[in-house]
Nucleic acid binder design. Structure first.
Length: 846
RNA sequence: GCCCGGGUGGCGGAACAGGCAGACGCGUCGGUCUCAAAAACCGAUGAUGGAAACAUCGUGCGGGUUCGAUUCCCGCCCCGGGCACCA
């Protein structure tokens, strides 16, 4: 017996259990149907479900359910990004094991997700901390290694003192702090494992153009991060202490080879290996080492601040400029970065503000070489090949386009970015083997080793005889041992049982690698694994990924604009080169959902500004919460949480419930009457068609809020009809059709309520969630009468209702004949009368 | 500094293709029901003037194009985000 009032608590758990036991949302490949892969970025199992989760997964759920109703075969999986530091930290705090903490959280969070009624195929669920999963991460690592994409190298790396491990560049925020714990990151020189993502820099950049389904800003951020610069490498000949040329050259990268004649000094980064060699035992040593030591001490933040005063010292050495044989002094300065380019820079102070500032500070010459068309000094320098002016009268450097002066045979050419002069100088250098066209990327290789326990062990062995040796594939997985006690600060490096091993090559004693992999490696391929989650002989069956991939709709937070999304694109391209997949991009369409805030700030426990979804569910049920959070704002915008409007959604669902149950009681299932001929019934029928079409359109463009508005309008129309037309005159069949339509339209948003209505009130045998989307006909939504707005000189003065098929002439005449219009045009000349079909009439008078 | 977003009633937000600004909801006010309250339902609700019909103004600011601009163009202001000593 159906309750007369909407009571979500009685029905939600009932249907959750029913769907679960019926495995309603399990899918397999079905070649007879078009497929859709709808994916929300999988969660880190923090245990609590917060409003951000509710929003994120509600969006995905509506999209998945909608596509299912539209006849697609829909893959909508869920899993757990289960390795990571929070588990270790929590284990230390609660004196337990990261595995126990993680597994308990997954249970808890999975229960919350079920309580929300999300339509996941739980049969495909995965946890990245399971050996059945992470072994394929290790396998991928070995395949990358075979392809030359794994490198262990010594370099300055980011060390997070809070996390006690190194971080990839992408994981350091622009203010120099750790993305996870906000500690200030330090630079350390360490030997670490890298994945050579830079091999794919160009393709990662180029393919952004193909991602028409991605937000522009995400693509802009990635392009920015990859940071491609075109220019040239230039070889400068090093001079010995006596100032005589040697056989050695030092190469620099420049984006402005056209300014080479303006190079008046040369710079090395403080970390550059040649620095110490140059100054050891010389009179310059003390001053130079001061700069080097100061740079070492400086934090990454200060070092990267443009505000910082540039420090430098002369090394006593000179290099020779290849274009003019000029000897220029070599300085050390902290504004030169070892990580970018070659760690050496040719300084052209007239064309670069940083070099300009440095030259002024240390009293170095600033010879002009590219001069703006309207600059006064062009008069005396125009066409002058030799250097006659060694210093500019400028206050700032000039980096724009202009005419080349004092530049030998290139004098008179156009200089600037992508200029004739740039090409000419580069060509000249290339002919002589002293330079070449070059492209530089800001993107660095991905540092993936982590000095932490709760992660995927790197499958490598250090052999004193053979060097670095990969773990043979048949020995995978390298199991993460469970007897590591993180509460005592232990890592794998404290466990001889783990690291003592034999070399697979020579059989001698060897040491297993004790670093684990960045958790971002685990999340770089999970979307592929969902396609074939239980495969125990391969990472996945290419037939299955061939059916499901690429992901048609990916949904996630903007915080992964670079991190996860860039890494996943990289992994996909490598798998493609391995022949495992035949596409280059994993995510066709991307929706970045906005944050849920309270009092203008992200909800967080530490800040104490949280609204717990459980509390809302306890009061209103999951359906109201789902619908409300989608109604509050468009999904890509930040949302300020407020309890105020919840009652509005509750009222709407309650009204829908009462309306549908009342109509259902009065009309037998499947009853169909004659088509309504009365105007009110016809209007309601038109409204039904309009709304069905609008809701479909809106969902496809993520207008979940406007889709709900349209459903509210349909309910308003249906209940107005019911209230204003006497029972005897109402079209019962139409009413039932509208009630069923409303139930179907609401189903993706409020799956429990609609299931109860569909089966118990409307009397259907099968689930509403296996029903097809209601049919609609745009023509049937069109009214046979249209209202025109009549404008006189741009102002609406009257309204006019005419038959929909009225001709333009008829509309024009009718408009001019209106009293209001006659009033306006009396005594004036009508200049133009413009009819916009179906919309308005615009009358222009003099 | 560069690159993306955004600025509309008291509030969240609509207006997808240059065509009636403010859909839908919240809130507020008035009403019905009730002994009363809650819930529910009905109605009003951009501002100003007016008893009303209605008029004028109104989408961050200033210009422009157009019969007509929240929408397109030019110049600004403010807010949010990303990048930034990258040679």
């Amino acid at each position: 017996m159906l309750a007369s009032n909407y009571d979500p608590h009685a029905i939600e758990k009932k249907w959750q259990a029913e769907w679960h036991s019926a495995r309603l949302y399990s899918v397999t490949e079905d070649a007879s149907k078009p497929k859709k892969y709808v994916l929300e970025m999988f969660p880190y199992p923090s245990g609590d479900i917060h409003m951000g989760h509710v929003r994120h997964y509600s969006i995905g759920d509506v999209v998945a359910r909608y596509f299912t109703m539209r006849g697609m075969s829909v893959l909508h999986p869920i899993g757990w990004d289960a390795f990571g530091l929070p588990a270790e930290n929590a284990a230390i705090k609660s004196n337990s094991h990261p595995a126990a903490w993680t597994h308990a959280n997954i249970e808890k969070q999975a229960a919350s997700f079920r309580r929300m009624g999300f339509s996941y195929d739980w049969d495909r669920s995965l946890r990245t901390c399971d050996p059945e999963y992470y072994r394929w991460g290790q396998w991928s690592f070995l395949k990358f290694w075979e392809r030359g994409l794994v490198e262990r190298k010594n370099s300055p790396v980011n060390w997070c003192p809070g996390c006690k491990t190194v971080l990839a560049n992408e994981q350091v925020l622009s203010d120099g702090t750790c993305w996870r714990c906000k500690s200030v990151v330090e630079k350390r020189e360490l030997e670490q494992w890298f994945l050579k993502i830079t091999d794919y820099a160009q393709e990662l950049l180029d393919d952004l153009d193909e991602l028409s389904g991605w937000p522009e800003r995400v693509k802009a951020m990635q392009a920015n991060w990859i940071g491609r610069s075109e220019g040239a490498e230039v070889d400068f000949t090093l001079c010995d202490i006596a100032g005589e040329p040697t056989e050695t050259t030092i190469t620099v990268f420049t984006t402005r080879p056209d300014t080479l004649f303006g190079c008046s000094f040369f710079l090395l980064a403080p970390e550059h290996p040649l620095v110490k060699e140059f100054v050891a035992g010389t009179e310059y040593e003390a001053a130079v080492m001061n700069v080097v030591r100061a740079a070492e001490k400086e934090s990454a933040i200060d070092r990267s601040s443009a505000e910082e005063e540039k420090r430098g010292a002369f090394t006593g050495r000179y290099v020779m400029n290849p274009v003019n044989g000029e000897k220029v002094p070599v300085w050390v300065s902290d504004y030169v970065l070892m990580e970018y380019g070659t760690g050496a820079v040719m300084a052209v102070p007239s064309g670069d503000q940083r070099d300009f500032d440095f030259a002024r500070k240390y009293d170095l010459p600033i010879p002009p070489v590219v001069v703006a068309e309207d600059d006064a000094i062009l008069g005396e320098l125009s066409g002058v090949r030799e250097r006659v002016l060694a210093d500019v009268p400028w206050e700032v450097a000039y980096a724009g386009p202009g005419v080349m002066v004092q530049s030998g045979e290139f004098t008179g050419m156009r200089g600037g970015k992508a200029s004739e002069g740039m090409k000419a100088v580069t060509g000249w250098l290339a002919e002589r083997g002293q330079g070449r066209f070059s492209i530089n990327f800001r993107l660095r290789d991905w540092l993936i080793s982590r000095q932490r326990y709760w992660g995927n062990p790197i499958p490598a062995i250090h052999c004193p005889v053979c060097g670095l040796v990969p773990v043979p594939e048949e020995q995978l997985p390298v199991l993460l041992p469970m007897d590591v006690d993180v509460t005592k600060g232990e890592t794998l490096a404290d466990h001889p049982d783990f690291y003592e091993t034999t070399c697979p090559k020579c059989g001698g004693p060897a040491r297993r690698e004790t670093d684990t992999m960045d958790t971002f490696t685990c999340s770089s391929w999970y979307y592929l694994r969902y396609c074939d989650a239980r495969n125990d002989v391969a990472i996945f069956d290419p037939e299955k990924t061939g059916y499901w991939m690429p992901v048609d709709q990916y949904i996630g937070g903007i915080e992964h604009a670079i991190l996860h999304l860039l890494y996943s694109r990289f992994f996909t391209k490598v798998y493609r080169d391995m022949g495992l997949v035949d596409f280059a991009e994993p995510f066709t369409n991307l929706l970045t959902q906005g944050m849920v805030k309270l009092d203008g700030a992200t909800m967080s426990k530490s800040r104490g500004n949280v609204v717990a979804p459980e509390e809302i569910i306890a009061k209103y049920g999951a359906d109201t919460l789902r619908a409300y959070i989608l109604f509050m704002a468009p999904p890509d915008k930040d949302l300020e949480w407020s309890n105020e409007g919840l009652d509005g959604m509750w009222r709407f669902l309650g009204r829908a419930w009462r309306h549908i149950t009342e109509v259902a009681e009065e009309t037998a299932a499947g009853a169909r009457g004659a088509a309504a001929v009365d105007p009110a019934g016809a209007a309601l029928r038109r409204e039904r068609h309009r709304v069905v079409g609008k809701v479909a359109d809106d969902i496809e463009r993520f207008g979940f809020n406007t889709a709900l508005s349209a459903m509210m309008e349909l309910l308003n129309a249906a209940s107005d009809y019911r209230r204003t037309i006497p029972a005897a005159e109402r079209d019962a069949a139409l009413e039932r059709e509208v009630a069923e339509t409303l139930t179907l339209l609401l189903a993706p948003y409020v799956p429990h309520m609609t299931e109860e209505l569909w089966r118990e009130a409307l009397g259907h045998e099968t689930s509403v969630h296996t029903e097809a989307w209601p049919t609609w006909d745009p023509a049937a939504a069109a009214s046979d009468a249209v209202e025109y707005a009549v404008q006189v000189n741009g102002k609406v003065r009257a309204r006019l209702t005419v038959p929909a098929d009225a001709s333009e002439d008829l509309v024009r005449d009718a408009a001019l004949a209106l009293d209001k219009v006659a009033e306006q045009i009396a005594g004036k000349t009508v200049r133009t009368v413009l009819v916009v079909p179906g919309k308005l009439v615009s009358i222009v008078i003099a």
